[in-house]
């Protein structure tokens, strides 16, 4: 029960309360660049969610078993080579390089999948699909997972990592679809010339971020409510 509650809280936290785009400022480039049409924005959001899920799984596995200090596989390799068993094997300096390659491979894999099963979607995406590998949101999710695999207590399992990254992807999709809807309306408005395009998009994003700030504290309230309910 406790695990399910904490998974739910991590998911809601990443999707709404600490929305990746509007609170952590990751994934801004596609948020400003791709959000002109709702259908394209929704497709981009789904692609990013898909890639984040795959990248989080791979990077969690890599970090847990190989990269973090005292990781099982690297310690086993070190000992089986006959070296000093008391030294702590710490490969975390290679983390960032490992993550960026994991992300590039995930994007490549998703691109092949989309090309084979949704060729029209692949055509309409064009160059934006490979550009997902420079989307800060995916690397940010990997870094958050790494942060929670460092301390001795409460290491995150694969389920926590997936809850965070899928929550982040869903939050990104929500934000980019809302923004696309707003910008479709803005096309018909009389925007001052200096603010046309990214300028007005940023101002609208600011108001959207203010709205999302209203979600602060929701996770605490929900957790308290669940705790009160399960005590009866």
């Amino acid at each position: 029960m406790d695990t399910i509650v904490s998974l739910f809280l991590i998911f809601i936290g990443a999707a709404l309360i600490n929305n990746f785009v509007l609170h952590y400022f990751v994934g801004i480039c596609p948020f400003i660049g791709v959000s002109r049409r709702v259908d394209l924005a929704f497709g981009m959001g789904c692609a990013v969610t898909f890639v984040i899920g795959i990248a989080a799984t791979l990077s969690w596995t890599l970090t847990f078993y190989i990269l973090r200090p005292e990781a099982p596989l690297s310690a086993w390799l070190w000992n089986s080579m006959g070296a000093d068993p008391t030294t702590v094997v710490d490969l975390s300096i290679l983390s960032y390089i490992a993550y960026i390659f994991v992300i590039a491979s995930s994007v490549q894999f998703v691109e092949m999948y989309v090309k084979k099963f949704f060729p029209s979607l692949h055509r309409s995406f064009g160059v934006f699909l490979p550009l997902i590998s420079t989307n800060c949101a995916i690397l940010f999710a990997c870094l958050e997972i790494m942060k929670n695999l460092q301390g001795g207590d409460q290491l995150w399992g694969l389920h926590h990592a997936l809850a965070l990254s899928l929550g982040g992807g869903v939050g990104f999709t929500i934000a980019i679809v809302i923004m696309a809807g707003l910008r479709e309306e803005l096309e018909l408005c009389d925007v001052p010339k200096a603010l046309k395009g990214p300028g007005i998009a940023l101002l609208v994003a600011g108001i959207l971020a203010m709205a999302f700030m209203g979600f602060t504290g929701v996770d605490r309230g929900v957790a308290d409510a669940i705790r009160t309910l399960t005590q009866h």
């Binding site: 609170h23 400022f25 998009a201 940023l202 101002l203 994003a205 600011g206 971020a209 700030m213």
Partner: peptide
């Protein structure tokens, strides 16, 4: 706060 970043950059 976060909204201020967007608003300031837009302006």
């Amino acid at each position: 706060l976060p909204p201020g970043a967007f608003l300031t950059l837009g302006v």
